[in-house]
């Protein structure tokens, strides 16, 4: 059977073909040549919505559909001189059983190149977790994604004493509107107190002793979850009063260490 002239098909037919491909097939096809990549990028708005999960520790980028049924993994490796067919592909790659291996000068370049490639193909939302072990690598990547105005589905940030975490916070704090679900983990002994100049849609803070009543009242998030909170009864009284007056209309999940109130599960959004 002679090769099929895929790229000579009418534009709409080609888009229909791309629609029929799953995430893995589409990524592999996009890597076949510059032309296939351009055509797939042209069909981006007809493409499926995906979540791009950045696992910095295992150097893996996981692309999956919202229902988790369609998953594909891209591994980034530092180029160790392994011969790979970079001349014939869009990215230097090798196929493996669970996904594809890509080779780069360093992981940062790899991550950013792969993410840029995916952003052109799919309607993407990023999910990222900046762990202490890999903050040196993840900080510039996350910062650059914010610069690209990429939307985040979830972002987990650990606030510790490291200059990288705090530097990252300062870079992204005015762009948190791009984040749907922000998780902040801070250490009890941390002296760094984040300042919010923008808010995500939902926020969850573990070790939230630094959260003050003022910041809580100015927060625009639809849902706020505070674990290990040190808010006092007086503060909670103010929140309840505001809620009764319909000023405070957010969902608040609160786990407190104060002895009198151990757990207030929910302040609903409906008016009392």
């Amino acid at each position: 059977m002679p090769p099929f002239p895929l790229l000579r098909l009418p534009r709409l037919v080609l888009f229909e073909v791309f629609k029929s491909l799953n995430i893995e097939e589409k990524i592999k096809l996009s890597l076949c040549s510059k032309k296939t990549s351009i055509q797939i990028n042209n069909a981006q708005f007809y493409s499926q919505k995906v979540i791009v999960d950045l696992d910095m520790l295992s150097h893996t980028i996981r692309v999956f559909s919202k229902n988790n049924k369609d998953i594909f993994e891209i591994f980034t490796y530092q180029d160790s001189g392994i011969s790979h067919n970079s001349n014939t592909h869009q990215l230097p790659i090798e196929c493996c059983t669970t996904g594809i291996k890509t080779f780069w000068k360093n992981h940062r370049e790899g991550y950013l190149s792969v993410i840029r490639h995916l952003l052109k193909m799919f309607q993407c939302k990023i999910s990222a977790d900046t762990k202490i072990d890999d903050i040196v690598q993840s900080q510039p990547i996350i910062s650059e994604l914010f610069d690209l105005q990429v939307e985040f589905k979830t972002l987990t940030i650990i606030l510790d004493e490291s200059k990288y975490q705090n530097f990252l916070w300062n870079q992204i704090s005015n762009n948190l509107g791009l984040v749907k679900d922000l998780n902040i983990i801070s250490f009890l002994d941390s002296e760094f107190i984040p300042v919010f100049t923008s808010w995500p849609q939902e926020i969850s803070i573990i070790c939230s002793e630094w959260v003050t009543l003022e910041s809580l009242l100015t927060c625009t998030c639809a849902t706020i979850r505070l674990d290990w909170s040190y808010l006092r009864n007086k503060d909670l009284g103010v929140i309840l009063r505001n809620w009764i007056l319909s000023i405070y209309t957010k969902y608040l999940y609160l786990m407190s260490f104060t002895p009198l109130i151990m757990f207030i599960p929910l302040l609903p959004t409906f008016s009392p």
Binding site: P3, P5, L31, C32, H89
Partner: peptide
Amino acid sequence: NTQEMIKVITL
């Protein structure tokens, strides 16, 4: 895989 795809389609 990509190599096989290249064979299937005319590039």
